[in-house]
Design a protein around this nucleic acid. Structure first.
Lengths: 270, 270
DNA sequence: CGCCTCATTGACCTAGTTCAATTTGGGTGG
DNA sequence: CCACCCAAATTGAACTAGGTCAATGAGGCG
């Protein structure tokens, strides 16, 4: 509830961090104590409207935001006025956790829909590092998954062409939204116009439209009025050459990496 | 010297971390104590030959490497056999610090030249987090600059075309190499064949060659036998629409961000 | 109803690819 | 020093994915 208090401060309303916790639990053991500390450190909700700029390029930042509802994207303008979308974030993602080490952002963050965020002040991250280094590593991990997604976009833009590039993007959205239970029967909400889709993939609106038709004709993907339907994600993934490894969703390999240290240093995960 | 020991362990030879320290000092206050702790935690040198794979995609990693000499690149293969270079790292860069939170890498790291690295075991990063959180934030910062570079590459690949895209890449290399004193009179060493340059920029070798000729004809850039000469970096940058902000080289804005916390928690920077 | 944004289509144009040959410049062995 | 080799650079000439321009439809909404 928005009225919750702890340590004399307003804390995040119950439920607002759920999707993040769900995404973490998909990847690591995550103790109740860790969840509790995170929740206590997060402050109440902020609302934004579609089109709002949540963070503008270059401005100093003193807190990071977790997207609890809605969609935002990272975007940069070139000197020639071309807009490039560098990532689409989904509920449960931190949208600017990287501003903690960086202090300011190199890009803008814009709301694609009405949305809500929960704050985590940078000084509270300092406290997390001191008290629960394992939780700090989870936060660092979250920022590194974004970096991995960036690398895959570089591959997508530099190496894949046409319909495969587009299909790859939809595969990524499918997997990321599935983590937070936002895919039902192969259908998910995605609030991008064809023009914006083109701004993410490096195509013009016209060509974006034609590629979507191509994917529809091949029975791989239907995308109309902000709703995507994937008949068979396996087929779409194989068409696109999509391999979800880069999302670090699966298991044991990196879970082991994260937890080695706790064992050694005795930080409890319970 | 390679024979140095501390805490009974072989430590990094004197000088091997210099370029990293130089790059940090370009951005933040960095105390001798911090430098000392980093140096004590880093283990002796490993050598690689041009073409060696330092880290291969997917394999688990237990230490990170700082590149003290030579050049390496991050690369991913697509299912269709196309190779994409996602970043070229320069001496003084950590090449896989992100493997600390991630545990494995989503891409391979390949030597472009003979090179030397110094190890930082992940358990030592745990110790750094416990003992010197500010140093840990500097490491986190280093990984986030890579992410920022990735975003700018997304913009470059998605939004800029032809000679401007190529010029932008050379501007980035110029600025990054200047930080570690590897630019002399506008000339710097860059060990990429035209084919590899194309793999970074999403062009074929043939087209890469033609773009280089175009830049040469415009008196913006000369690139022959692994040596790049920029007549006037200002002109090249303005031609490319290059703005170095995303490299987080300059000053006060994010330095303030990094140091706020130390003040609060009293961790000394001296 | 009228407006406005977004989707869609068609015709033409160009940046970049593809294929195929030729040249260049180090290295290497004799 | 020369003959040879090989990878990389360079050139030319078709070819095509994607861009550009311009017009038309279609849904949402005051």
């Amino acid at each position: 509830m928005a009225g919750d208090f702890a340590n004399g401060r307003r804390v995040a309303p119950t439920g607002s961090v759920d999707k993040f916790v769900k995404a973490v639990r998909k990847r690591f053991a995550f103790s109740d104590a860790e969840e509790r500390m995170l929740l206590e450190r997060m402050s109440g909700t902020t609302r934004f409207s579609a089109g709002d700029v949540l963070v503008s390029e270059g401005s100093p930042v003193t807190f990071s935001s977790l997207l609890s509802d809605g969609f935002v994207c990272r975007e940069k303008m070139t000197d020639s006025g071309h807009r490039q979308i560098a990532e689409v974030t989904v509920p449960g993602d931190f949208i600017d956790l990287h501003s903690y080490p960086l202090g300011r952002l190199d890009h803008s963050i814009t709301a694609l829909t009405d949305c809500r965020t929960v704050r985590l002040y940078h000084e509270d991250i300092d406290a997390i590092i001191q008290e629960r280094p394992r939780l700090a590593r989870i936060l660092w991990f979250a920022t590194m998954v974004d970096a991995s997604i960036h690398r895959e976009w570089i591959v997508n833009l530099g190496s894949r062409k046409g319909a495969k590039r587009m299909a790859h993007f939809f595969c990524e959205m499918y997997y990321r939204l599935e983590v937070v239970d936002m895919v039902r029967d192969g259908t998910f909400f995605l609030p991008l116009t064809q023009g914006q889709l083109g701004e993410a993939l490096g195509f013009t609106p016209v060509h974006t439209n034609r590629l979507l038709q191509e994917l529809r004709a091949a029975n791989l993907l239907e995308y109309r009025s902000h709703s995507a339907t994937v008949a068979d994600i396996g087929e779409l993934a194989s068409f696109a050459g999509f391999d979800p490894d880069y999302l670090y969703l699966g298991g044991a390999r990196h879970r082991a990496g994260l937890d080695r240290a706790d064992h050694q240093y005795g930080a409890s995960t319970r």
